[in-house]
């Protein structure tokens, strides 16, 4: 696994992982859930899809995950998609309640027919990355919401995927836990060199985490603006209070508000 390299290299020089070309998705032939979305994901990217509900950000994620086919257009993995190339973190922790933490993290390997023993090191390494190796024998119900989310992240990381998709993973958590997990997520990214597509409806979260923000609008779901965040990683508290952080947040907010007022009247969050 190539580390650090893709993360410091300029955007254009990083190797592409995945292309979305002119992807359309319509449900029932009526409203376009997603229109004409094109995106090239490059190694080391941290891309946020930012938008109000109904803007197609989750649809985009489900398309990339291969959970449904696009109506039009293409999604291509460079070099094809291998087993374990993709990790997904849902809005809910989505753990199997009948299995221990370690067994949950083992799942991606288990489905490939690999015994626990043969991948034990990898499972524990992933748990160590999220700081939960001591809880490997606990059941999900014994953990707090934030800890469950960490297990979910460990499971997504355990195969060392080329791409991790995160669908508003921290939306249900309290603000303090959420900030902590944001910090931890960036630390994880630094350690693993993971490439992430992150769906969120929080402007600040997207500015803090990502190097590219795609602002999306609803009806039809589409990308209306791409914002590049030049701040180098690692990012910490200084970044949260930097003037540039505020400027980018402002830019993203303005773009978002434009979408809300331009379309039909809709309740803003």
């Amino acid at each position: 696994m190539s580390e650090a390299d893709p993360m410091t290299a300029p955007l254009s020089e990083r190797a592409p992982i995945l292309h979305m070309r002119e992807v359309d998705k319509t449900f029932g032939g009526q409203v376009a859930a997603l229109r004409r979305m094109s995106l090239t994901v490059r190694e080391g990217d941290f891309i946020s899809l930012l938008g109000p509900s109904g803007c197609g950000k989750s649809t985009a994620l489900r398309l990339i995950a291969g959970l449904m086919p696009p109506t039009l257009g293409k999604i291509e993995w460079v070099g094809g998609q291998g087993a374990g190339d993709l990790g997904v973190v849902f809005q809910e922790p989505t753990l199997m309640p009948w299995a221990t933490v370690a067994q949950n993290v083992w799942l991606p390997f288990r489905l490939r027919g690999q015994s626990f023993k043969s991948v034990k090191d990898k499972v524990f390494e992933a748990l160590a990355l999220v700081g939960l190796e001591k809880f490997h024998d606990s059941y999900p119900r014994e953990l707090s919401g934030g800890m469950k989310m960490r297990v979910s992240i460990a499971r997504a990381l355990v195969t060392r995927p080329r791409l991790i998709l995160m669908d508003e993973p921290f939306a249900a958590l309290d603000e303090i836990t959420r900030q902590k997990l944001n910090d931890d997520l960036l630390a994880l990214r630094a350690k693993t060199g993971a490439t992430v597509i992150f769906v969120t409806h929080s402007v600040f979260e997207s500015v803090f985490l990502s190097d590219r923000i795609l602002v999306m609008a609803a009806r039809p779901g589409r990308v209306i603006k791409e914002i590049t965040v030049d701040e180098p990683y690692p990012r910490g508290l200084e970044w949260r209070i930097a003037p540039q952080y505020g400027e980018i947040a402002r830019e993203a907010s303005d773009a978002l508000h434009g979408t809300l007022h331009a379309g039909q009247p809709e309740m803003a969050e």
Partner: peptide, 12 residues
């Protein structure tokens, strides 16, 4: 759980 079902699909 439908998310777990999706997860099963993703991991083929």
């Amino acid at each position: 759980d439908h998310n777990l079902q999706d997860l099963m699909t993703i991991y083929k």
